[in-house]
Amino acid sequence: MDNRYSLRFRGPHLLGIEGLVPYEIQDLLDRADACVDVNRGLADRRDRLAGRTLLNLFFENSTRTRTSFELAGKRLGADVVNMEVATSSVKKGETLIDTAMTLNAMHPDVLVVRHGESGAVALLARHVRCSVVNAGDGLHEHPTQALLDALTIRRRKGRIEGLTVAICGDVLHSRVARSNMLLLLAMGARVRLVAPPTLLPGGIEAYGAEVTTDMMRGLEGADIVMMLRLQLERMQSAHLPSIREYFRLYGLTREKLANAAPDALVLHPGPMNRGVEIDGVVADDIDRSAILDQVEMGVAVRMAVLEALAGPEAGR
C-alpha cells in the first residue's frame, strides 16, 4: 500500500461508523478504491491475507452480504469459513458470550458478524480475541454498507462533501440509514431523511440531518437518492396502511425523481422490492441507477476493511 496518508484507520474492530473520524473513513475509501482493480482481476493480492482465517458468523440470513465478504476474503488469499448459525448450538440457547468463548478457541483472525439485535456485535467483540467487523446489528449500524455507498458516490461524483443526499423510506428500522447518515454527515454532505411519520425515529434530527415526511420536498435538488428496503411486515404493526399507498407516496418513480438534480444518482442497498419502494424502470435505468455499482464496490470495501484489520500492516 502507498503511504501517502499517515493518518489511517485504527481498528481493531469495525463496529460502526460512529466512533470513526473523517480521516479514518477517508483512509478506508482510498484503500477500497485501490481494491476495485483487484476485484476486477486486474491485480493479484492473494498474498495479503494468506494464512489468515476469516470467519463469517451470520445470525441473520443474508446471502448477499455474506458472499461479498467471502469473495473479499478469498481475493486477499484468506481462508474463509462460514459458520451456519441458524443450525448451530446458538439456536439451542447458547449465549452470545458462550459463542465468543468457543470462537476464541478456534483462533480466527477476523470475525464478520451479523446479528438481529442492536449492540450484539459490540458485545461479542468485547469477548473475542480477534478483529470483528459488524455486518449489521439490529437497527443499529451496517458500516460496510455505508462505506460502499460512499465509495460508489465518490467514484461517480468525484466527491462527497457538499452533495445533497436524500435517504428515503423506512428510516426507523434501517441500520443502513443510520450508518449512512453518520458517514455522510462526517464527510460534509447534506443529509435529508425522508420517511412517513411512523417510520422516523424520534430525536434523530439531533445529529444534523434534515428530516421531512414530504417525499417531493426531500428529493428537491438532491444529488443522491438513497432508497431503503421496506419490510413487508410493517403493515401488521400499523406503521403503514398498505403497499399501494406507500408506493404512491414514497415509491421512487420517474416523476418523483424529476424533482431531484438532473444528474441525480439512485442507490439501493438491495434486495429491492420493485413496485414497493422503487419503480423497476428507475432501478434499471443505467444512467441513473448505481445499484449494480454498489454491489461491486461492496467487495472492494470489504477487501479494504479486511486488509486494514488483518493485513501485513495491521497493528497487531
Binding site: S118, L139, P201, G202, G203, I204, A206
Partner: peptide, 13 residues
C-alpha cells in the same frame, strides 16, 4: 427512552 440516544443505538423506545 425515546430520543436521540435510542434513535442512534437502534433501540425500540
Amino acid at each position: 427512552n425515546p430520543g436521540p440516544i435510542a434513535a442512534r443505538l437502534g433501540l425500540a423506545s
